[in-house]
């Protein structure tokens, strides 16, 4: 039950893009078409889950026992950058069809702050390994959901006559604000589910 709660809270209540502001660059940059948005969403979910497992193990079995906590930022970013490269190479050999679908998005993910953000966050919250995996996976789903919904809105936005000064990024930001406002409607969900499942 507690995993279901993490899952729902990460997607709707604390949506990674719309309420935690992680991964804004791809959210604004790769959301012009629904097809590219869903590709990016899948790629991020995939990398995010694997990266969180690797960094979690590294933190618990290398950094903490040897008191190297201050190297966290440096090691995590290098591990994530290497991992993204490695996933790209492995996918190219093992599954060319998946590589063709995700290929262009993979290099962009290194500088997506939601990967590093989630890796650091699960250490700070002190989740167990399984909880971290569920959290990372559902954060990825939440990212994909926000991206796809936003891309669908932006496709419609192209046909609207926007006032001159608001054209371009300005109207996109205001639209994102309204979407974020809509997601705030979910904020009561977590407490309700908690009492429903009988969790404190």
């Amino acid at each position: 039950m507690q995993y279901l709660l993490i899952f729902i809270a990460a997607i709707f209540v604390n949506n990674v893009v719309l309420s935690q502001f992680l991964g804004i660059c791809p959210f604004l940059g790769v959301s012009k078409k629904v097809s590219t948005a869903s590709g990016m969403g899948v790629a991020v979910t995939f990398v995010l889950t694997i990266a969180t497992i690797v960094t979690f193990v590294l933190q618990k079995y290398v950094l903490t026992p040897y008191e190297l906590d201050y190297l966290q930022t440096l090691t995590f970013i290098i591990v994530i950058a290497t991992l993204v490269q490695m996933i790209e190479i492995i996918l190219k050999k093992m599954s060319p069809s998946l590589y063709n679908a995700l290929g262009v998005f993979l290099p962009l993910i290194t500088t997506n702050c939601c990967v590093l953000g989630v890796a650091i966050l699960v250490i700070q919250i002190d989740y167990s390994l399984l909880e971290s995996v569920v959290y990372a996976f559902s954060t990825g789903i939440g990212f994909a959901l926000a991206l796809i919904v936003f891309a669908a809105i932006r496709e419609q936005l192209d046909m609207v006559d926007v006032p001159r000064g608001m054209r371009g990024m300005s109207v996109v930001l205001v639209t994102a604000g309204l979407l974020s406002l809509a997601f705030m409607g979910f904020s009561g969900l977590e407490g309700g589910l908690r009492s429903l499942f009988g969790l404190a």
Binding site: V171, V174, M184
Partner: peptide
């Protein structure tokens, strides 16, 4: 709150 950030920056 978060929505205000997007909207203020937009304007």
């Amino acid at each position: 709150l978060p929505p205000g950030a997007f909207i203020t920056l937009g304007f």
